[in-house]
Design a protein around this nucleic acid. Sequence first.
RNA 1: GGGGGAGUCGCAUAGCGGCAAUUGCAACAGACUGUAAAUCUGUCCUCUUCGGAGUUCAUUGGUUCGAGUCCAAUCUCCCCCA
Length: 289
Amino acid sequence: MDKRLIIVAGPTASGKTQHAIELAQKYDTEIVSCDSRQIYSELCIGVARPTIEQLSIVKHHFVACRSVEMPYNVFDFEHDAIELIGHLFCHHDTVIAVGGSGLYIDAIINGIAVMPDPTPELRNQLKDLLNRQGIAALQSMLQEIDPDYYAVVDKSNPIRLQRAIEVSITAGRPYSKLIAEHTIKKRPFDIEVVVMNVEPSALRERINHRVDEMIDSGLYEEVCSLWHLQHLNTLNTVGYREFFAYGTPHQAASAISSITEAIKLNTWHYAKKQMTWCKKRYSQRENQF
RNA sequence: GGGGGAGUCGCAUAGCGGCAAUUGCAACAGACUGUAAAUCUGUCCUCUUCGGAGUUCAUUGGUUCGAGUCCAAUCUCCCCCA
């Protein structure tokens, strides 16, 4: 019997969570979340975690199971998810994956290259270099270390440059080589992608409505409880950073309506990026329902 | 009624005689193999064979080789005094 993974993709607030639950019920199976933020136990309201009721209807994996203080990334996710999916297939013919993190979904579908983890010190050094000498310093560094990648990177994107440099240094070989060596993984199961398509204007309304609900549900209190962790990359997230921008919980409290508007707008921007991602990657697999 | 200020490409903003016009936001399109709800790019008056071409800065006239910029009148808005 063929095993099948159905991936529910699409922009935020498009109804992925609900659709995935319906599919899981239909096939009497479980859900693997592919969401880089819902995975954290401290983030709930702001990342639209499925409700307690929803979580009780169908078993969800990778939701609220890690701390924001423990670094996690796509590579870890690929490993954990593929292992878990393997286990789930022992008891189910179909498994549902759902999430808005395109890169995470990609990792499940194609796998991701094996690369060494750079030390935090190295990353900080490069960050320092960037701050003190500007992006040109990173550019010339990468040009020397990995000319092939330099030829194709977005040279004005500091994160891309930084990443390629730190990996090349740690591995002792060019980043581009490591990527070139990665071959698309053949998964021992079929994959179907369902993209949730919502009219942009309707999606925008859904987003606005959902953000209002988040505020009403106590997003401010949730953010306050994380205020001391705002330096963490994980907290550089729509729904949280808009509060942090005001400096103190007290100042943020007096600006709730501007913050709400900012979150709505930023969520919309995020949704558009997700749609662009889906358009490019899954257009041939498009919309099966 | 009297006095003062202002009208610039969706919104905001720069511009002080050489300008299709600054910057921010929004909008739209896109990139992205360990920060990914992150990070970054392009377009953004109209047309374009991407070399350019044509129309613009409330309106109408004027000064000037040349006007968003100076002058006059008109219209609209804001503030102050009545």
